[in-house]
Design a binder for these strands. Structure first.
Lengths: 153, 153
DNA sequence: TAAAACCTTGGAGTGCACTCCAAGCAAGCC
DNA sequence: GGCTTGCTTGGAGTGCACTCCAAGGTTTTA
């Protein structure tokens, strides 16, 4: 087990899919201000502070005057949280996951279960969306046909 | 154009995907009470009244004493609204669509545009979810590997 | 016919996920 | 040094999509 308490995130070796709005992480020296992180993640500074307040962040480092200094590890975590957010997972569940991460390796099984449940939800949602796509296509075709009919009466 | 102001909905010829929790529409004589509709659609009676108040329903019929009597056409419309809801479309946009439907055929083009925009959103969301699925699978595999390693030290 | 279950309304309340505010320090620039 | 911009906090406010309430009329069941 080479992993620390905070998990490794895939090291982002697969950027083949279009990058989200604002994620060009600079090769900075690992201490980002809150507004930099806001720019990288697309979240607002407000939301980042709120995430920390509710326990969704793993203890963010501070400068000697008390300002937040986020690390690349924090950005990885936020990227993962962003993925979970896309699944529609409630924030409360993400907090539960974050707590389990803080608690250490004995929560591996529970974490895996949570992710497997989430995985099922995602598959279900994809199916629903594909169904919806079929309905939309049907309706769109109806409107297209209506237009053709009125053009060539 | 054989369509009335309210569009036809596909007649549901493709129930191959698992039916949602409670949609077994009975061969009733086309006048359902609000609680029957609630049972068929999975929405609450509260929500159905609210939908009507905000203009998301095409004028629901009433009994001689003023109680709502929904038709099969209403159920079709609600099924379509349910699909739109799955896409994450805001209720305000659905109301806009409903208004266009009420306004008649001259809104065909605008309706088609709205649906095409929605279609693009759905495709995008499906892609996002598939991305997310990859991340989840990676994490789940990590936990599975961790378990195997501890079983066979 | 009487009780139980269901329906009506406008308006108020809920839960979620942010989003903003005020007052006061902190940091970068001329 | 002084100015502007940025960061800090707890707590209050916002927007969305419902969700519920009270008081009363209606329909069904026994």
């Amino acid at each position: 087990m080479i992993e620390s308490t905070i998990e490794n995130t895939p090291a982002r070796t697969d950027p083949c899919k279009a990058a989200p709005p604002a994620h060009p992480r600079p090769e900075g020296h690992d201490r980002y201000t809150i507004s930099e992180v806001a720019a990288f993640t697309g979240l607002t500074a407000h939301t980042l502070r709120w995430y920390e307040r509710i326990g969704l962040m793993p203890h963010v480092d501070r400068s000697h005057t008390g300002q937040r200094r986020f690390t690349n590890r924090d950005l990885d975590w936020l990227a993962f949280v962003g993925k979970l957010r896309l699944t529609g997972m409630p924030v409360a569940d993400m907090v539960k996951y974050a707590e389990m991460v803080r608690e250490g390796e004995h929560t591996f099984e529970a974490r895996a279960e949570l992710l497997q449940r989430t995985r099922r939800d995602v598959l279900e949602r994809i199916t629903e969306l594909q169904d919806t796509l079929a309905v939309l296509d049907h309706k769109i075709k109806f409107y297209a046909d209506a237009r053709t009919a009125s053009e060539r009466p």
